[in-house]
Amino acid sequence: MKIAARFYIAAILAFLYLPILVMMAMGFNESPLYELPFSFSTRWYQALAGNAPLVNSGINSIWIAVATSIIATVLGTMASVALSRRTFRGKTLLQLMLLPPIAIPWLITGTAMLVFFFYSGIGRGLHALLIGHVALAIPYVVLVVGTGFQTVRADLEEAAMSLGSTPVHAFFSITLPLLYPSILGAALFAFAVSLDQFVISYFLATPGFSTLPVQIYSAIRKGFTPEINAISTILLVGSMAVIVIFALFAKPGGVSDKR
């Protein structure tokens, strides 16, 4: 029974990883038509360097992810302070308002942004992408930082105030250092959400300004070339690295007060 179960888990893992590994391997195959047998080559990675649209969109993706991460982390942490540490009416409603960006299919959110941005004069392109990505990342930040708040006792700030700290000083000297792992985790999470975001970007990108997933999509639609495999591999490895770092930092109670 146990052996069958382990075999089954192995099969599931194979199902999950094999296609990805095949795709990665094909990026190192000499043949432009994915012909086998395999012959190792880095020519597609070298070709990437000369593919200006892909390289530019990759750079765009990283910049947008960095900006999204910073903005969403700052705003989301602020909101999380209020939602975790203050009492006020309508809090439940505000918490529920974090759900639509997560739960509504991105196709609908994305097209809604397209419509509204077009008629409100915001338009498409870099700033529109940034507005959209930050909005998608904020709820995750609020949730991750909010979880972190649960591990930082509220009376620590009171203790600091009783010793002469203003609320602002208490927050920066006590709460923020204790919240640091959660905030860093939230920032990485926001970075990953933005880096991998395709649907919203697809509707808000312009021919002159797009992100890597959008470029990959249009390349796939035109036809497969091993260059796509190469850039996909880079994107995949990049976002996996971010998630692994996230997992290491956002461990609940990593550096927090466990008493």
């Binding site: 009376d155 620590l156 203790a159 006590i174 008493r259």
Partner: peptide, 10 residues
């Protein structure tokens, strides 16, 4: 002030 949970900065 001394708090019930001591509230030492961890």
């Amino acid at each position: 002030m001394v708090f019930q949970s001591y509230a030492l900065f961890p």
